[in-house]
């Protein structure tokens, strides 16, 4: 149509016009009416289909997916924040528990130390008492033993001295010497 309209402007008489129109229709560059017609019809159909039928459901699906992803991301962020706060809370609680346990351990240690000192003190007193009693018993036993041994040793010494000196010696005379020897530290 475009080509024909352009050529009609230049046509004077009928014969020349027909020839010009034919030349125009043969030109491979110029658009042809029927192709323009079908091009316009089909593009209009495609545009209407895309606008009202084809595109809306696709965009709806894409939007729903984007919303879902956004919601999931928001939920993940919220969960992350919640986890962070819970972790902080747990950490704080752990710190409190650690401090409290340290206090308890310190108190228990102090108490145990005091108890140990008390027990050790009591045992030491008891041991000292037992030791003193034992020493007293030993001393008494020694005194008793010495008291029992003195006359016998004096008799033995007097007898031995009598044999050496070949004259009788009274055991009573040797008694002070024997007592002095038995009582000496060496």
């Amino acid at each position: 149509m475009l080509a024909q309209t352009l050529m009609l402007r230049f046509g004077e008489d009928g014969e020349e016009l027909e020839e010009l129109v034919e030349v125009a229709a043969d030109n491979p560059i110029l658009p042809v009416t029927s192709e323009l017609f079908w091009g316009a019809i089909t593009f209009a159909a495609l545009f209407l289909l895309v606008k009202y039928v084809l595109l809306p459901p696709v965009q709806k699906t894409m939007q729903e997916r984007a919303d879902l992803l956004r919601a999931d991301l928001d939920a993940a962020d919220a969960a992350r924040e919640k986890a962070g706060s819970v972790a902080t809370e747990v950490s704080d609680q752990l710190a409190d528990v650690r401090a409290e346990s340290a206090q308890i351990i310190d108190a228990a240690r102090a108490e145990a130390e005091a108890e140990r000192a008390r027990i050790v003190g009591a045992v030491e007193v008891e041991v000292a008492a037992a030791k003193a009693e034992a020493e007293a018993e030993i001393s008494a036993a020694r005194q008793r033993a010495m008291a029992g041994v003195g006359p016998a040793v004096a008799d033995l010494a007097a007898d031995a001295a009598s044999r050496v000196m070949n004259r009788p010696i009274e055991a009573g005379a040797a008694r002070p010497v024997v007592d002095r020897l038995l009582n000496s530290p060496n």
């Binding site: 149509m1 009416t33 029927s34 192709e35 017609f37 079908w38 091009g39 089909t42 593009f43 159909a45 495609l46 289909l49 895309v50 039928v53 084809l54 595109l55 696709v58």
Partner: peptide, 26 residues
């Protein structure tokens, strides 16, 4: 005629039908 249907018109029609079918198949 003004509605002469040749290969170019057929391709134009297919250029409507193919996207329509693809979008409907999705």
């Amino acid at each position: 005629t003004f509605y002469a249907f040749n290969k170019i018109a057929l391709i134009s029609v297919l250029a409507v039908l193919i996207p329509t079918v693809l979008f409907k198949m999705a």
